[in-house]
């Protein structure tokens, strides 16, 4: 190696430079210019369907662009009937996928890591979770809602990820991180 010449070094550099350019060009094989990821985890739609025979009230939150600039819509199909017991079912959808992905199934599968908290500002509305996870703790996908006298107020649905289970029944006491928090104006008549 005594006859080491700087010209060799320059050649070596040139080869390295060229080969790296080739490397770059080759590596663009796994470039993914077209297959952009869409939001697979996004919850675009939260539906709370309350059923008592033919009296069906659907409460729905929809935000198709997720965190984007378009404002979400809140809709409620009609007022709740006073002094009635409804069977409630929550459905979470990702409607950016075609067909829409049912996220409720994921929540159900990981029931021990999730819990819904449904509360109302109307004090005589009583909501009870009727389903349980593998440990016998409530999940809240299914519930019963009992209305009292006519009134107006709000209804809030919160989904916690990794809450303390069992807990004191409040979202604050359960901790965890919040995956869903939507509030609707409701009317009982």
């Amino acid at each position: 190696m005594k006859n080491f010449k700087s010209i060799n070094t320059i050649k070596l550099l040139a080869i390295l430079f060229v080969s790296s350019i080739m490397f770059v060009s080759c590596s663009s094989d796994d470039d993914d210019h077209d297959d952009h990821d869409h939001e697979e985890e996004l919850i675009t739609t939260v539906t709370y369907k309350l059923t008592n025979g033919t009296d069906i009230v659907t409460i729905e939150f929809k935000d198709i662009d997720g965190d984007g600039s378009a404002l979400p819509t809140y809709s409620i199909s009609g007022p709740l009937t006073a002094n009635t017991t409804y069977t409630g079912a929550i459905e979470l959808l990702n409607e950016t996928e075609d067909p829409a992905e049912d996220i409720t199934e994921e929540v159900e599968e990981e029931g021990d890591e999730h819990e819904f908290f449904i509360t109302s500002s109307i004090s005589d509305i009583v909501i009870t979770k009727t389903d349980v996870d593998e440990d016998g703790n409530p999940i809240g996908i299914e519930s019963s809602l009992v209305t009292g006298d006519a009134s107006t107020g709000t209804l809030t649905i919160i989904l916690k990820h990794e809450p303390t289970k069992p807990n004191d029944g409040t979202s604050a006491g359960a901790g965890g991180s919040t995956d869903v928090e939507v509030t609707f104006d409701i009317e009982v008549q």
């Binding site: 770059v24 663009s28 796994d30 470039d31 993914d32 210019h33 297959d35 952009h36 990821d37 869409h38 939001e39 697979e40 985890e41």
Partner: peptide, 16 residues
């Protein structure tokens, strides 16, 4: 060159 590797299931924070 920045390559946002696909398969994350979320929109890439930084594009290619």
């Amino acid at each position: 060159q920045n390559d946002a590797i696909s398969g994350t299931g979320v929109r890439a924070l930084i594009p290619d």
